[in-house]
Design a protein around this nucleic acid. Structure first.
Lengths: 349, 349
DNA sequence: CTGAAAGCGCTTACAG
DNA sequence: CTGAAAGCGCTTACAG
């Protein structure tokens, strides 16, 4: 491993000068810089991040991304957006996959685990508790959240209540009155913000439409495909059967479609189905859904992270173009799984 | 940030003793150890990874996982398996998402980028070139591959030729003779090993069955859903139309199913379809497929990585239970998308 | 069982 | 423009 000393010996200058030359600092003659650079390339020099970090006050040029489940489309997609932006700016990404494990969450967000290991935290899909917020803030750790809004920290998300309202109101406008909900009803894991906001939106739109709340119509789907199938099976047995269902994620909607078809129901004639996400397979299933921009949420959050760290960089202020709380817009995408009760889909092609 | 010096002052011993006490080294009185531990907890002490790394010879306790696409099911699933095993052993995971970018690949595998940043490399889904192998070896970087076999390095994979043969032979046994292939035909990106082995398996089984090779039957599907749809559209236009198709991934198979149904074909009566993976949505589509263990490949590879680094740890040898080249077994899962030509599926329920 | 001291590979005032 | 020296927070022989 060639070090700064090797370069100093090789070029006949001091290590201090080598250090300055390498980093493009002023007060180094052009000729010296050339010689040092050349030697660095020739000897395959790479700075030791440990030494750099130690000497320059603990910077790690590393950001931790904490997700609930790497394997789910939403999280993987957010990661890919954020990773790209951070990478471009020379940051490494440390991945923490919580796997919905409460203990892992405590370890990562509630202990010293990350202090000194990363410069900032990007938390996706879970809302830190007030204690965690307090703790991380007291540690001076910059944090950005995706999918949850914490007053003190920058965040990117979509308006989950509005998402649900948009879906349910689409069904109401088509004439449905008995509308079921598939989502996360019982708080099991550690992801709360999004599921809760969506049920709320569902309930509020029904109330605003003067429809009485029927708890029987709220089905547990766990935000998974299998959960959606299970919820769909229960749904088709309800009497009277709902004529439509709003699913809080496309993956659950796929499951409901399957269950409906297994039960011999026609979609949308017998059952209209709406999802959320515009998952890569949604158009495949011809699913009506509320599209949310996902890569963009990752990209934007990464920019917020960079911005939070920016004031530390000499001569750089905050980027005025980066907002504290950002709500990206969503969009109703009408496809073939919704129609007026009893009618086939009206395709406008 | 409390340091080892604070603990030393607090407990009235030297920093050397604090260091030993903290790490559970022998030659420290039980009483001293207690006092140090207590102070560490009370003051919220966390060792600086930079200082530890610098002082103890460059260890980083970090492993880089390099993948082609985080967003694809296979890669995300391998990551989750590997991450869990590494995490349990106290290693952090640095994620590099290549996104099929040749330049990113060069930067990561062909330069000094990773030297001094990570203790080992876990490469998923791409086979390093001989130059890269030589380079990384000369740098002393421990590397494990998933899905490609490099003689010098430990690897985990499935036998991709056998996978293809299993699928094609299932179709041959059902009586099909005109069998198409959907996979990666034209080498575009940087993922080569797996796609190539699978076409080879397809061609070989047909040849062994005495069926002449027809290049028209090999369709480009790019290992994506959309690629599968596109390939499927071309497939249904072929004359005479094949009676069956082997797809090198489930995602492409989903696409072919869609195209077939759009074209009014019945599956499996008019077209039998086989995939590879047993993707989480495969049973959903009732797809016949060759199942490969994916989380397990990630877990096993992580163990190989740990084993590769083990000899450095005092008193530890290699784990004899960890093999150099591992081929995990695959399994034909017969579902409803395959049958004898012209016949409906024979379900054994 | 414990401490003083050197060293890991850099950066950063401070002189010159 | 350049160098000598201290320091970042640990670990590790070496003494005792």
């Amino acid at each position: 491993m060639t070090s700064i000393h090797d370069l100093a010996r090789e070029t006949g200058v001091s290590t201090a000068t080598v250090s300055r030359a390498l980093r493009g600092l002023p007060r180094v003659s052009e000729e010296t810089r050339q010689r040092v650079m050349e030697a660095a390339v020739r000897l395959g020099y790479v700075p030791s991040p440990h030494a750099v970090g130690l000497a320059s006050g603990g910077q790690t040029r590393t950001v931790a991304i904490v997700v609930l489940f790497v394997t789910r489309w939403f999280f993987a997609t957010v990661i890919s957006g954020a990773e790209q932006v951070l990478r471009e700016r020379g940051y490494d990404v440390l991945l923490y996959n919580l796997n919905d494990d409460e203990e892992a969450r405590r370890r990562v967000l509630g202990t010293h685990l990350l202090t000194k290991r990363v410069d900032a935290l990007l938390v996706v899909g879970l809302g830190p508790t007030p204690q965690e917020v307090h703790w991380l803030s007291s540690q001076g750790m910059p944090v950005v959240t995706v999918g949850a809004r914490i007053a003190q920290w920058p965040s990117v998300r979509v308006d989950d209540e509005l998402v649900a309202r948009t879906g349910v109101e689409h069904l109401l406008a088509l004439g449905h009155r008995r509308i079921a909900y598939v989502g996360m009803i019982h708080d099991t894991g550690i992801s709360l913000a999004t599921p809760r906001a969506r049920v709320r939106g569902y309930r509020d739109s029904l109330r605003d439409a003067g429809i009485e709340h029927d708890p029987e119509l709220e089905l547990e789907g766990q935000f998974t495909l299998d959960g959606g199938v299970a919820a769909g099976r229960r749904l088709v047995e309800l009497a009277p059967r709902p004529t439509a269902v709003f699913c809080a994620s496309d993956e659950m909607a796929f499951g409901v479609l399957r269950a409906a078809r297994d039960a011999g129901l026609r979609v949308p004639e017998d059952l209209s189905v709406v999802g959320v996400d515009d998952h890569e397979m949604a158009s495949f299933f011809d699913l009506t859904t509320i599209r949310q921009p996902v890569v963009e949420q990752g990209r934007y959050a990464a920019r917020q992270v960079l911005d939070l760290m920016a004031p530390d960089r000499p001569g750089q202020g905050e980027d005025p173009a980066v907002a504290h709380h950002v709500e990206l817009s969503t969009e109703l995408v009408v496809r073939g799984t919704t129609s007026a009760p009893g009618l086939p889909a009206q395709r406008s092609e």
